[in-house]
Amino acid sequence: MFSSKKRLDRAYKEAKIVEFDNNSKIILFSDCHRGDNSFADDFANNRNIYFHALKHYFAEGFNYCEIGDGDELWENLSFESILNAHKNIYMLMKLFHKDNRLHMIWGNHDMVYRNPEYVKKHLSTYFDAKTGEDVELFKDIKYHEGIVLKHCKTDQEVFLTHGHQADWWNYTFWKWSRFMVRLLWKPLNVMGVADPTSPAKNYKELIKVERRTKKWITENNNLITIVGHTHRPRFPEPGDIPFFNDGSCVHPRSITGIEIENGEISLIKWQISTSDDGALKIVRVLLEGPIALENYRAD
């Protein structure tokens, strides 16, 4: 537990501060696991849902916080193959970035992004085959281990991090896990065999990760904390330990996320729905909330 505490302490202490108020609009997604559009790309099934949702949030003036495992860099050797598979997604994210509305956190599956030089080399530009030249993508983008949303009037804080700090194997031995995924679990995943080291696929590990995170939250004056990693949405009632999880973008036929708007927090889902005339459409479903963030204040 000490190592989990130490890692979470560091992520919080070194977190980027992003100020917000009751007029701010923020959408949180994590665990997109964007891949290369192969059979092992879990994101591919939901990419149209995700793209539609992100277009909505861009048009409505939301800030986008991606809290880890956005890119699947365990199964895939390079970002370039992922970019080529989902270029429309990255062009939309580029618009958020140019508007200073994109805030990125690295997780265990994209832990290489904790190296600023790697980020600069691979994400600043991309090669455009049409022009034969390098084109700007995410110029000067910074990835963080944690982000603190700080209310500029009340000073209330909301701590965002991926959550693998409470998962010693996937934090400390992430390179070994990446090796095993590439060598063994990626081909087995195509055949439907789940990776037992992933807390999203291993319920016992999931419970342990959640328990360690909740313990850290209680030791830090019940600081509102929002994570991903386990893929299991969590939305506590006021008075409970304020441990939130935005779920993932690789649920079967749906994606989940957390919205902060009007000083309130909500858990939402985007999914494909069938209308009475048989037409398919992508709809937003409110799962929990909205509840005022003030209701989660420890004091």
Rank of each mutant, 00 (worst) to 15 (best):
I207Q: 15
V283Q: 03
G163W: 03
Y203R: 15
H122C: 07
R178P: 09
S124C: 10
R10F: 04
M191D: 14
R178L: 10
A11G: 00
E294S: 06
P290Q: 08
E219L: 09
M91R: 08
D71R: 02
F20M: 08
T225R: 07
I27N: 02
F159P: 00
W174H: 14
I49T: 04
I224N: 02
D299F: 11
H251G: 14
T225V: 03
F159C: 00
C65V: 09
Y90M: 05
F243Q: 07
F235Y: 13
L95P: 12
R47A: 02
N45G: 11
G132N: 05
K150R: 14
F127T: 05
W169R: 13
D71V: 14
V119H: 02
T256Q: 13
P242S: 05
Y296W: 13
K186C: 13
L223M: 05
I26P: 06
I147D: 01
A166Q: 03
W176G: 14
K214Y: 13
T154H: 07
F29S: 06
A298G: 13
T218C: 09
V181H: 04
D240T: 11
M93P: 12
P199S: 03
D41G: 09
Y203G: 09
N46K: 15
N63V: 02
P238M: 11
Q165M: 07
K55M: 07
R7N: 05
M191H: 02
V227K: 14
F96W: 07
G132C: 03
C249F: 12
I255Q: 10
P116N: 05
Y90L: 05
A129L: 01
P233E: 08
A85R: 01
W174I: 04
Y90G: 09
D240K: 13
N262H: 04
M191L: 10
R182A: 14
K281Q: 12
D195M: 05
P236Q: 00
V285Q: 14
M91Q: 11
S124N: 13
G192W: 07
D134M: 10
T256H: 10
D128A: 09
L183V: 12
D246Y: 10
W216T: 06
P238N: 06
W106R: 04
E205V: 08
N222T: 08
P238Y: 14
K25R: 02
V193F: 00
D276L: 12
N100Q: 11
T125K: 15
I241R: 00
E157F: 10
Y113N: 12
L92E: 09
R182G: 15
E264L: 08
W174R: 13
K201R: 10
K13E: 06
L267E: 03
Y203P: 13
F51Q: 05
Y126G: 05
K281Y: 12
L8M: 06
M180D: 14
V112H: 00
S81F: 03
D299W: 06
D140V: 06
S275D: 14
E117C: 04
